[in-house]
């Protein structure tokens, strides 16, 4: 790890747990939850945010001395919007079905608070390499929560993972369905995403008491 100093590693690992953008910083919930009914959509969303945040952080960091602070929000929005258009066009070209499922939520990455938050809090004050790592770390922290929520919602809601049936066949009653197990269709409803995130926060804060709010 000649390339990464100890501080650099911390930039990546911190947002994964104790400074997670969703459960601790409360950023980026907006576009995150609606698409987590399937693991695949969560995965794509995570990768899209990884790309936008990693590249965007570098661009903003390179421009940081050239941006007048009065108009920095508009500059940031334009940078994100341009990156998101790239993601959107790539998805439409190579994964059209998936881009239909994600519908407007790819566009909503623009106003994802994680991105603006990291630009404001980190990229405007740090060098490109650190900003890149910070972007990657935060996007990974975001993706981890998305994947956990997507995993449980798809597994319990439709008995599949990435579209592959893992619990047996619900119609022919094989696997666990033979024991009388039923899919919980309610997991596919939007409110369950919120409740699962609530439970993740509960687990995380029970393990790390310093994070408890009063």
């Amino acid at each position: 790890m000649g390339l990464l100093s100890k501080k650099d590693v911390k930039l990546i690992t911190d947002p994964l747990a104790d400074n997670n953008p969703i459960t601790i910083q409360v950023l980026g919930i907006c576009s995150a939850l609606a698409i987590t009914a399937e693991l695949k959509a969560s995965l794509v969303m995570g990768v899209a945010v990884l790309f936008v945040l990693g590249v965007g952080n570098v661009i903003i960091s390179l421009l940081r001395n050239a941006i007048p602070s009065e108009i920095r929000i508009i500059v940031q929005l334009i940078v994100v919007a341009a990156l998101v258009i790239i993601v959107d066009q790539v998805l439409k070209a190579f994964a059209f079905e998936l881009s239909k499922t994600l519908s407007v939520f790819i566009g909503l990455i623009i106003t994802n608070c994680i991105i603006m938050g990291r630009f404001e809090a980190f990229a405007l004050a740090n060098k490109p390499w650190q900003s890149f790592l910070d972007g990657i770390g935060n996007a990974l922290g975001y993706a981890v929560i998305l994947l956990i929520v997507g995993f449980f919602r798809e597994l319990l809601g439709s008995g599949t993972l990435l579209g592959i049936p893992v619990l047996g066949d619900p119609i022919e009653k094989t696997g666990v369905y033979a024991l009388g197990y039923e899919d919980n269709g309610f997991m596919l409803m939007p409110p369950m995403a919120l409740i699962i995130v609530g439970l993740i926060i509960w687990v995380q804060r029970s393990r790390n008491k310093t994070l408890i709010e009063d």
Binding site: P191, L194, I195, G198, I201, W202, R205, K209, I212, E213
Partner: peptide, 21 residues
């Protein structure tokens, strides 16, 4: 205690969402 603040807000929002369904 671990649910205080953010956690319980998420869960309440979820319950309200079920109501709105």
């Amino acid at each position: 205690a671990p649910l205080r603040g953010l956690g319980i807000t998420f869960i309440i929002t979820g319950l309200m969402g079920i109501g709105f369904l």
